[in-house]
Structure formats: structure tokens, C-alpha cells
Simulated scan of single mutants.
Amino acid sequence: MKISKNIWNLLLLLLCPITTTAQSIGSAQTQVNVTIAQVQSIQISQPTVNISMTQPSHFLLGNSSGQQPNHIKVSSSTAYEVTVKASSEYFSQNGNSTTLPVNTIALKTTTGNLTNSNAAPPTGLQIASQIMLSTLPTTIIKSPAGEWGRGFHVNYVIPETKSPSYLNRKAGTYSTTIMYTLIPQ
């Protein structure tokens, strides 16, 4: 039997390995940049806090506002510090300065919740458990890491030792403004 030349070439092609190489049509690249800025925010959840001095026991033992849950809310992309200070040395009444000093109020601060999370606070978080108000900035929170939406509970307290300062005062509401400042570290 005679095999035609075309069949023979076909058999040869089938039996012999053929290697081909793909040619690249082209390529392109891009650079992706992420710009990170320091972002900080501080909020106070209860803009007005009241302490009643309406019972005899308040003038003997002091009183408090009760815990203000997540009163201070901090969001910071970096480590941070929070300070607190009173706007004046003395309370005012009806817009007039009095002789009742603001340093009769203590702030007791504890760790609160992180927004939408039960995450533990960063290791190394420092909280001043109690400070007396002053017109000088006093550090109450110092965090070695940023967090987004960490709350801190605050209780405004008239300690027993300061309650006599409220005796012999004209009845009415005594006010002061307290400023919290967030400082990136």
C-alpha cells in the first residue's frame, strides 16, 4: 500500500512534539497610593450634667451626678491624650461669678465601650481614676494606640470632704463650663 505524501506528513506531525510560544500582546501597570492623615474627634454625650444638693445627707456626705455612660467619646487614628479643665476658678450663678470654687468637684473616669464592638481597650491605656477640677489642663486619659469610637464613663462627684463648701450658699443653680481636649501623640 502506498501512502500518499500528504498522509505521511500528517502522521509525522502527529507523532512529533510541537512547541509553540505565546507572544505577549502588551502589559501595563499602575501605582496605588493610600494617603493617611491623622484624624481625631472628641464628643461629649451629655452636654449638661446636674448634681443635686437637696438633701441634708448631701451636705454631710457629698453627692454625685451618677455615672454618665460613655460621656466622653474619642476617635483617633493615632495614640492620644485627653485633658480636662474648668473655664474659670469659680462657679457662676445667673451669669455672675461666685466664691464657690470648681475644685470642689471630682471627676471619676472609667473605660467605656467601643462603638459597635466589645473590643478590649489598648494595652497600656492609662486613666486617671479621679481628679479634682482645675483651670489647669489635667490629663485624664492617655492611650498608646488609636481607636475609633472609644467611650469613657464619667461621674462628677462632690466628695464628702468638699461638701461643707456648699453650706451657707444662696439657693439656685451654680454653673461652670468644663472643656475636654484631645491631643494626638
Results as ranks from 00 to 15, higher is better:
Ile25Trp: 04
Ile25Pro: 01
Thr35Glu: 12
Asn6Lys: 07
Val32His: 04
Thr99Glu: 12
Val74Leu: 08
Val157Pro: 00
Thr177Val: 04
Thr135Glu: 14
Ala28Ile: 00
Asn9Gly: 03
Gln43Val: 07
Ala86His: 05
Leu107Glu: 03
Pro56Asn: 11
Ile51Phe: 00
Tyr156Asn: 05
Val74Cys: 05
Ala79Trp: 02
Ser75Ile: 01
Ser143Glu: 06
Pro69Gly: 06
Ser88Asn: 15
Gln93Ala: 13
His71Trp: 07
Pro17Thr: 08
Gln185Ile: 06
Asn168Phe: 13
Ala171Glu: 10
Gln67Phe: 05
Trp148Ile: 10
Ser77Cys: 03
Met179Phe: 12
Tyr174Arg: 14
Asn168Tyr: 15
Leu114Phe: 05
Leu10Gly: 07
Gly172Asp: 07
Ile36Gln: 13
Ile131Tyr: 08
Leu182Arg: 02
Thr135Arg: 12
Ile18Glu: 02
Pro144Arg: 10
Gln23Phe: 14
Ala171Arg: 07
Arg169Met: 12
His71Phe: 10
Val82Met: 03
Gln185Ala: 04
Val34Leu: 15
Gly149Tyr: 01
Pro101Gln: 09
Gly62Gln: 02
Leu136Pro: 03
Leu182Cys: 01
Ala37Tyr: 07
Lys2Asp: 14
Pro137Gly: 05
Ser88Val: 07
Pro17Arg: 06
Leu125Ile: 05
Asn155Glu: 15
Leu12Trp: 10
Asn6Arg: 12
Ser4Trp: 06
Phe59Gln: 00
Asn33Gly: 08
Tyr80Gly: 01
Met53Lys: 06
Ile183Glu: 00
Val84Gln: 00
Phe91Thr: 00
Thr30Ile: 10
Met132Leu: 15
Ile183Val: 09
Leu136Gly: 09
His58Glu: 01
Gly66Pro: 03
Ser134Pro: 10
Val157Lys: 05
Thr111Ser: 06
Leu136Cys: 09
Ser117Phe: 05
Leu60Met: 14
